[in-house]
Design a protein around this nucleic acid. Structure first.
Lengths: 123, 123
DNA sequence: TTATCATATGATCATGTGTTAATATATAAT
DNA sequence: ATTATATATTAACACATGATCATATGATAA
């Protein structure tokens, strides 16, 4: 089966694999495309300075939109748009208290990702 | 000092912080902007399906461009472009063997980031 | 109700990004 | 030298993205 896919690729592609054994082996260990897509989508959310700052802030404390604006010196609209993206990705959750919306991280995975990334940076 | 920055932000911003104590506290715990920028740049590189697939493949084995093309069914040019970005970000390294270029991960941080991310996805 | 405050949303615009085709380079083989 | 092979590079294009402005919503206060 895996063999068939590789052969098929070789036809579609202008290049044919040189090291068939490696390709075959790695093919078997690759996660399925859905997983790769979800994962890259997750990383993409982290891949913007504004969003990353917001996430870092929220990893320290629950905050309202207003406070995030003041903290990061950003326009309310910009913050709101980014928070919406984070909400869509289920990375942050929110609760309302009167007129104020409080945002916080949905789980600790985010914190761990931030830390792991930071380790890479500061080596 | 931190206080001054906050006040300054409040002036530039159309919104004034509601919870001053939170803003002050989080401000002190925020990493500097350079770090945030580097980190978001790193995540951005991971935030593309093609690059992420390549990275995953390389986390399993050193591979040449040709093999990556066959494995992921991508045009040689597309792979080469993405490998260049990964090279620029110092995430992958390469060695030449005759006409063939072999790519591999520069260090194990990448592997760890992939794993940490995957944990988040598959919960 | 009306006014005000905190936040959300929609449209627009400039900029960034990934893919492709065409071409260039670099190495090896004939 | 010529040819073939593996990879890199350049330019072009379609598309996505983030910030901004204007405006809408939703909740409280007067």
């Amino acid at each position: 089966m895996t063999q068939d896919i590789r052969v098929q690729n070789a036809e579609l592609c202008e290049v044919k694999a040189i090291h068939e054994n490696i390709v075959t082996e790695v093919t078997q260990r690759m996660p399925n495309q859905t997983h790769v897509q979800s994962l890259s989508a997750l990383f993409k959310v982290f891949g913007d300075g504004t969003r990353l700052s917001i996430l870092w802030a929220l990893s320290e404390s629950e905050m309202c939109v207003c406070d995030i604006c003041a903290l990061l010196n950003l326009k309310q609209s910009a913050v709101s748009h980014q928070l919406n993206k984070l909400k869509m990705s289920r990375i942050v959750k929110h609760r309302r208290d009167g007129k104020v919306m409080f945002y916080s991280l949905t789980d600790d995975h985010v914190r761990k990702l931030l830390e792991t990334g930071m380790e890479h940076i500061s080596e």
